[in-house]
C-alpha cells in the first residue's frame, strides 16, 4: 500500500506571523518549519505502511527553502520526496495549489493521499477536497482515526455533534485532524539517512501545468488590513456600589 502525504513549510507558529503590505502575502523570512499539522499526516502515513507494507512519498509545493520540510518528513521515515518550486507559483491560491499537488500526485503510485485539514498559515481548508475533486476520488475529511482492510478505508470523522464512521474504497484523499496520533521525532540515524533518499524536483512543465500560476490564478488578494485592536474595557471604580454594577454588567451580557 502506497501513501502520498501532502506537506507544507510554514512560518514557525510559535512566532507571530506578519503580512507583507507590498505583496499581500505572509512574510516567510523568519524561522520556517514543517507545518505542525502535517506532522500528524506524515505519522498517519508511516503507520499505514508499517502495517500494510509499501512506502510513503511526501509531496510539497513551495519555495526552495521548503526542502528542509521535505527532509524532515524523510527523516521521520518517508521514502521519497517531491518538491515543486517555481517563481510562477508564488502566491498561488488554493485551487492552483491543489492543481499542482494533484498533478504531482498523479505521477506517483498511491492508494491513499493524506493531508492535514488545513495549513497553519493560509487556513483555507479547501485544498484536500479540491485535490480529491481533481483526482476524481473520494475525500474523507477530518479523520481522527483510520484503518484499512483490503481496498476499504474506514475512518472516524470528527463532527460538531459527534463522531461519524465513514467507509470509502481506495484510492481516497484523507485529511487528518491534529492529535490523531503522536508524530515521531526524527532520529539522528533517520536524519543522516534522509540525505540518501530520492528527491524529485519537477517543474510546472514536467507536470504539464503550463496554464497554472501567475496570471492564470483565479483569485487575487486585493487588500490587506490589520485586525482591529481590542477596545479598552470598562473600569468600574468602587464607590460603594461596584459589586452591583459588575453584576448588572454581567447580567446585561447574559453571562450570569
Amino acid at each position: 500500500m502506497n501513501v502520498v502525504v501532502c506537506i507544507k513549510q510554514v512560518p514557525d507558529p510559535n512566532s507571530p506571523g506578519q503580512l507583507d503590505p507590498s505583496t499581500h502575502l505572509l512574510k516567510r523570512d523568519g524561522e520556517l518549519v514543517l507545518d505542525p499539522g502535517d506532522e500528524f499526516g506524515v505519522e498517519a502515513g508511516l503507520q499505514l505502511v508499517e502495517k500494510h507494507g509499501g512506502q510513503v512519498t511526501v509531496v510539497s509545493m513551495g519555495p526552495e527553502r521548503g526542502l528542509d520540510a521535505v527532509r524532515k518528513a524523510l527523516a521521520m521515515g518517508a521514502a521519497k520526496g517531491v518538491l515543486i518550486s517555481d517563481d510562477s507559483l508564488r502566491g498561488s491560491d488554493a485551487l492552483t495549489t491543489a492543481k499542482v499537488l494533484a498533478a504531482a500526485i498523479r505521477k506517483q503510485d498511491f492508494d491513499v493521499v493524506i493531508t492535514a485539514t488545513e495549513s497553519t498559515d493560509g487556513y483555507t481548508g479547501v485544498v484536500p477536497q479540491m485535490i480529491a475533486g481533481l483526482l476524481d476520488i473520494p475525500a474523507v475529511t477530518f479523520a481522527k482515526s483510520v484503518s484499512v482492510e483490503g481496498d476499504k478505508l474506514t475512518a472516524q470523522r470528527q463532527t460538531e455533534t459527534g463522531i461519524e464512521v465513514v467507509e470509502a474504497t481506495l484510492p481516497v484523499v484523507l485529511s487528518v485532524t491534529a492529535g490523531v496520533n503522536e508524530p515521531r521525532y526524527p532520529s539522528l540515524k533517520g536524519i543522516m539517512g534522509a540525505k540518501q533518499k530520492p528527491l524529485d524536483r519537477p517543474g510546472p512543465a514536467d507536470l504539464n501545468l503550463e496554464d497554472v500560476g501567475g496570471a492564470s490564478t483565479g483569485q487575487r488578494i486585493t487588500a490587506i488590513d490589520s485586525a482591529p485592536e481590542r477596545a479598552a474595557g470598562e473600569i468600574i471604580k468602587d464607590e460603594g456600589e461596584a459589586a452591583k454594577r459588575i453584576v448588572d454588567f454581567l447580567a446585561d451580557k447574559k453571562v450570569i
Binding site: D68, R71, A75, Y185, P186, L188, I191
Partner: peptide
C-alpha cells in the same frame, strides 16, 4: 544541517 535537525528533535522532545 543534520546537527541542526537533530537539535530540533532534541528541543521538541
Amino acid at each position: 544541517a543534520e546537527h541542526d535537525a537533530l537539535r530540533e528533535t532534541v528541543r521538541d522532545f
